[in-house]
Amino acid sequence: MWDYSEKVKEHFFQPRNAGTLDDANGVGDVGSISCGDALRLMIKVDPATDTILDARFQTFGCGSAIASSSALTEIVKGKTLDEALKVTNQDIADYLDGLPPEKMHCSVMGREALQAAVANYRGEEWSDDHEEGQLICKCFAVDAVMIEETIRANNLSTVQEVTNYTKAGGGCSSCHEGIEEILVKVLAERGESFKPGALPEAAPSGMTNLQRIKKIEAVLESIRPQLKRDGGDIELLDVDGKTIYVAMTGACAGCQMEALTLQGIQQKLMEELKEFIKIVPTKAGALSRASCQP
């Protein structure tokens, strides 16, 4: 079973703002029953201030889909529409202390629902880009525009990452070539080149992956005494390209300071590695995929 963060579990077991909002003036329906996720977001906007006074959701989906919906409503309440539209799927995931990589698409769905609800309030037709973009992933109806934007917003560089964030490519995998083409294009804009299959990409600083991992370990080692003094610890779980998965244990796990600590560690790692990296707190074990029903 997935090993969710305490925050995800909390929002799944006691979802905030679940149910219908009778005086909603903006409604966003997104998702797809074939994918196993669907979400209706209802918002009540104060026309005078453009502020979201209340938000509710109804979700068909797994634990992390329900938790992401709950988090989304908490995040947007009290925000103006313009502020709310700046919320990214990463913000939703961060609010929940991270999601397992394969579940990132749940947070993407939350962001889409928000855009749809705001468009609905403003009386605009929310096109969801799908009319514009070429349909790439036919299994999950994900188009080129959506993939491109997600790659940009999250600095993705591999097909696997794109699948984790958008679901595209997670079904029959026949669109992997199409996803690669988009990656080639967006990475070129960033001045990088796409390396097919090179999951943990060779480090830009000329370090081999092993050297990089050793360096990361050294950084973590250097801050370990400090964590231990506070009764906690950190464990390196995986390095996947620019994403570094760690598990916080002991007093650090789920504590208020965790996010702050992680930010500090991320900063330090970036300085040491001289490249942009993202640190993702994950429970030990969460990275192994559950296998098909045995």
């Binding site: 979802p15 679940a18 149910g19 329906d29 997104v30 998702g31 797809s32 029953i33 669907a38 979400l39 209706r40 109804q58 979700t59 068909f60 329900i66 993407v108 769905m109 889409e112 629902a113 749809a116 929310w126 969801d128 799908h130 109806a141 959506m146």
Partner: peptide, 22 residues
């Protein structure tokens, strides 16, 4: 089911929930 957008009270929603694909 209380959380589900497809459900209403004690049966499926009358006006079927038909979300935009995301």
């Amino acid at each position: 089911r209380k959380l589900s957008p497809y459900w209403d009270g004690d049966g499926p929603k009358a006006d079927a929930f038909a979300p935009t694909y995301a």
